[in-house]
Measured scan of single mutants.
Amino acid sequence: EPLWIRPDAPSRCTWQLGRPASESPHHHTAPAKSPKILPDILKKIGDTPMVRINKIGKKFGLKCELLAKCEFFNAGGSVKDRISLRMIEDAERDGTLKPGDTIIEPTSGNTGIGLALAAAVRGYRCIIVMPEKMSSEKVDVLRALGAEIVRTPTNARFDSPESHVGVAWRLKNEIPNSHILDQYRNASNPLAHYDTTADEILQQCDGKLDMLVASVGTGGTITGIARKLKEKCPGCRIIGVDPEGSILAEPEELNQTEQTTYEVEGIGYDFIPTVLDRTVVDKWFKSNDEEAFTFARMLIAQEGLLCGGSAGSTVAVAVKAAQELQEGQRCVVILPDSVRNYMTKFLSDRWMLQKGFLKEEDLTEKKPWWWHLRVQELGLSAPLTVLPTITCGHTIEILREKGFDQAPVVDEAGVILGMVTLGNMLSSLLAGKVQPSDQVGKVIYKQFKQIRLTDTLGRLSHILEMDHFALVVHEQIQYHSTGKSSQRQMVFGVVTAIDLLNFVAAQERDQK
Rank of each mutant, 00 (worst) to 15 (best):
G240D: 09
G240L: 07
V241C: 14
V241I: 07
E244F: 07
I247T: 10
E250W: 07
P251F: 02
E253W: 02
T257R: 08
T260V: 10
I267N: 06
D270K: 07
F271V: 02
I272V: 09
I272L: 07
T274L: 07
V275H: 02
V275A: 09
L276R: 06
V281S: 07
K283G: 05
W284A: 02
F285W: 02
S287D: 02
N288S: 09
E290A: 05
E290R: 02
E290G: 14
A292N: 04
A292H: 02
T294M: 06
T294N: 05
F295R: 06
R297F: 02
A301N: 14
E303Y: 06
L305E: 06
L305N: 02
L305F: 07
C307P: 07
G309I: 02
S310A: 02
S313T: 12
V317I: 08
V319W: 02
K320T: 13
K320M: 11
A321T: 09
Q323Y: 15
E324L: 04
L325K: 07
L325V: 02
E327C: 13
V332F: 02
V332Q: 02
I334W: 02
L335R: 02
P336L: 04
D337F: 02
V339I: 02
N341H: 02
N341W: 02
T344C: 06
T344W: 02
T344N: 02
K345M: 05
K345Y: 02
F346I: 09
S348M: 09
D349P: 07
D349V: 08
R350W: 09
R350F: 05
W351P: 07
K355P: 02
K355G: 07
K359W: 08
E360W: 14
E361N: 15
E361S: 12
L363I: 10
T364I: 14
E365S: 11
H372C: 13
L373H: 15
R374I: 13
Q376L: 13
E377V: 15
E377K: 15
S381I: 15
S381V: 10
A382Q: 14
P383C: 08
V386F: 10
V386Y: 10
L387R: 12
L387W: 14
P388R: 15
T389F: 15
T389N: 13
G393D: 06
E397P: 04
I398H: 02
L399A: 14
K402W: 02
G403N: 02
A407I: 14
P408Y: 02
D411H: 08
D411M: 09
G414E: 13
G414Q: 15
G414R: 14
V415M: 08
I416V: 12
L417G: 12
M419V: 12
T421W: 06
G423D: 05
G423L: 09
M425W: 09
S428E: 14
S428T: 12
L429W: 09
L429Y: 07
L430R: 13
L430V: 11
A431P: 15
K433S: 08
V434D: 14
Q435N: 15
S437A: 13
S437T: 04
D438A: 02
V440M: 13
V440S: 12
G441E: 09
V443T: 15
I444W: 12
Y445T: 15
Y445I: 12
K446C: 12
K446T: 15
F448W: 15
F448A: 02
K449C: 15
Q450L: 11
I451L: 15
R452L: 14
L453G: 05
L453Y: 02
T456P: 15
L457S: 02
L460W: 02
H462S: 08
I463H: 15
L464W: 10
L464H: 04
M466G: 14
F469A: 13
A470F: 04
L471Y: 12
V472Y: 02
V473L: 07
H474T: 15
H474P: 09
I477V: 09
Y479H: 02
Y479N: 11
S481G: 15
T482E: 02
T482H: 05
T482C: 10
G483S: 12
S485V: 02
S485K: 02
Q487D: 14
Q487V: 11
Q487E: 10
Q489S: 14
Q489D: 02
M490W: 10
F492I: 14
F492W: 12
F492A: 15
G493Q: 02
G493Y: 14
G493P: 11
G493T: 15
T496F: 12
D499R: 04
L500G: 08
L501F: 09
L501Y: 12
F503S: 07
V504L: 06
Q507L: 08
Q507G: 08
E508G: 14
R509M: 13
D510T: 10
D510Q: 02
D510I: 02
K512G: 15
